[in-house]
Design a protein around this nucleic acid. Structure first.
Lengths: 334, 334
DNA sequence: CTGTTAGCGCTTTCAG
DNA sequence: CTGAAAGCGCTAACAG
């Protein structure tokens, strides 16, 4: 391995001068600089980032820690990456597998030390577990959980979004709207928040809230949603609308409705949440709640930068606004 | 910050003993061990991974470097993660933004030094650029490009997959099949390989190959595909089948066909490539070529482990087999 | 503008 | 089974 002292010897300067040329932290005379760069080139030197990190106490790297790499998180990550890079830092993704044990491990101070800042999308940790995370590292939490006040946090307007989607379907004539993937008690606070919004929409319209229309799913996948909805159809419970708590769930619903011979939106209106890319392409277009991924990404990075600049700043808690995007899966679109 | 020497002092042992307890590299007497662990607990010590990395020359971390975080790569990453973790290493994702400049930078030896091994999904680099990557780091290349022989490499059976999908639609009665997203000359070798498979299917069936049916897309997104296909419809070119070079492209085709009032598969058969989750849920189900993500992930991790164990092993070049998954978007399914 | 010194926190090596 | 010394490769701080 070629080290800085090899380069220094080759160029006839001190190690410090090589360091200064490469990091631009102090001015170096033009001729000296040229000799150093020539030596770097000749020897094929590349700085050892691990050594730099240890000495400088800085890695110029931000981690985004997510439950899984695909779907929602992949889309958000692609929004965050350019914002982090714009500040001259690298973004790396790690995943926790939505497994509380792994999630705690990802949060171990040891692992966090590798980064200058961390964006953590909490999936399975409750407030108490988060409270045990004691680190001076700048952390911004993303996600729908309740978190200790001392953390910066961004969540979506879950109730509001669910209410908007449900009201929209009520206005379109639906009277028996399933809340697919929603729950009364759940490790995922998001599913209960969105259930509440679904209830609120009913109350506002003077419609009764029937618990049988809250349909949980066993696995939060399209497949799980498909099976759950097919079970409802088989049970004979009449319905004319489906509010899916996420677009991934809505996708499973689309499949189940098609297989059951139910037409969207004629027989059943359908709305989702997250506004994934796919929702605008699946015919007839899935009405969804747009959480403004880009805006959330910007807020997240802004909070993290603020926190990295000032560890003592008061924690900020943002509820990101959402909006309804009407497509062909509900009446009133097109 | 609490360091090992703080712990050593607290426990009344040497720094070395603390290190041995924590890394399990040398046996430590039970009572000593207990004192050390108590001190670790009392002080809240966490090992400094950067220092460990520098000294040990090892990070126990593998990087998967991909063009973007979403869709295809996110799904593959979720398959790879558990395999890497099973060997006691961490997986991190970095992205190159499918931009040749960034891709070269991600490949800088400096950045690679941070990892014990790298899985690199080449998107925009040609063989010459890859040939300039000179590093002793274990690297396994993934993707459809041609790569220098000295690299381990896994690619899909692109021609074969395209041929299978196209032949299947020909058997189902299609005679005018668009190759949507395919190309004659392209930075993406994949798009030309799949075009060749489309041609082969025609030749085998004794059908003419009409260049007008090769429809490039400007951006490799569903939206780009949707627009390209709407343009074809508007042009009046008759067609009764669409081979989409990826499922993301196929999704855009589904939207465009629906908007044009063309029924799938009655008026137009449709097949994609990649077998993304979404393809099984979009009605009527998109016939696709399954690249066996899990198998590719296993091969990739196997090659990387072999390379990490033996830097001098001969490079292996794997063409991963694919299979046709028939769904409702083609006749002969269901 | 350039150099010298010291040391980041850990683990390898050698010694007991 | 435990310890002391040395140093991984780099940069902050201080000197000239």
């Amino acid at each position: 391995m070629v080290t800085m002292s090899d380069v220094a010897r080759e160029a006839g300067v001190s190690v410090m001068t090589v360091s200064n040329v490469l990091s631009d932290r102090r001015p170096v005379g033009a001729p000296t600089r040229a000799r150093v760069l020539a030596a770097v080139e000749a020897l094929g030197f590349e700085v050892n980032l691990t050594a730099r990190h240890l000495r400088a106490g800085r890695t110029d790297t931000v981690a985004l820690i997510v439950p899984s790499f695909h779907d929602y998180f992949g889309e958000v990550a692609d929004e965050i990456a350019p914002l982090v890079e714009a500040e001259g830092r690298h973004l790396v993704l790690e995943r926790t597998s939505a497994n509380p044990e792994h999630e705690m491990e990802s949060l171990s101070v040891a692992r966090l030390q590798l980064y200058d800042g961390v964006l953590l999308s909490v999936a399975a940790l409750d407030r108490d577990q988060l409270d045990r995370v004691r680190t001076p590292k700048p952390i911004v939490l993303l996600g729908e959980h309740e978190v200790p006040d001392r953390f910066d946090h961004i969540k979506l307007a879950n109730e509001e979004g669910a209410r908007l989607a449900t009201s929209h379907m009520i206005e379109g004539g639906s009277r028996r709207i399933l809340a697919l993937g929603a729950a009364y008690e759940s490790a995922h606070k998001m599913t209960t928040d969105r259930r509440v919004g679904w209830e609120t929409a009913h109350r506002e319209a003077g419609l009764p809230v029937d618990e049988r229309y809250v349909v949980p799913v066993t696995t939060y996948s399209s497949q799980g949603a498909r099976e759950a909805l097919l079970d409802v159809v088989a049970s004979g419970l009449p319905f004319d609308g489906v509010f899916a708590v996420t677009d991934v769930i809505a996708l499973g619903a689309v499949a189940a409705l098609a297989e059951s011979g139910l037409r969207v939106p004629d027989d059943v209106q359908l709305a989702g949440f997250d506004n994934l890319d796919v929702s605008s392409f699946v015919p007839p277009g899935i009405t969804s709640i747009d959480p403004n991924h880009r805006g959330v990404a910007q807020d997240a990075v802004r909070l993290l930068h603020r926190r990295m600049a000032d560890a003592a700043a008061p924690a900020e808690h943002i509820v990101a606004p959402v909006r309804l995007v009407v497509r062909g899966s509900t009446r009133g679109g097109r």
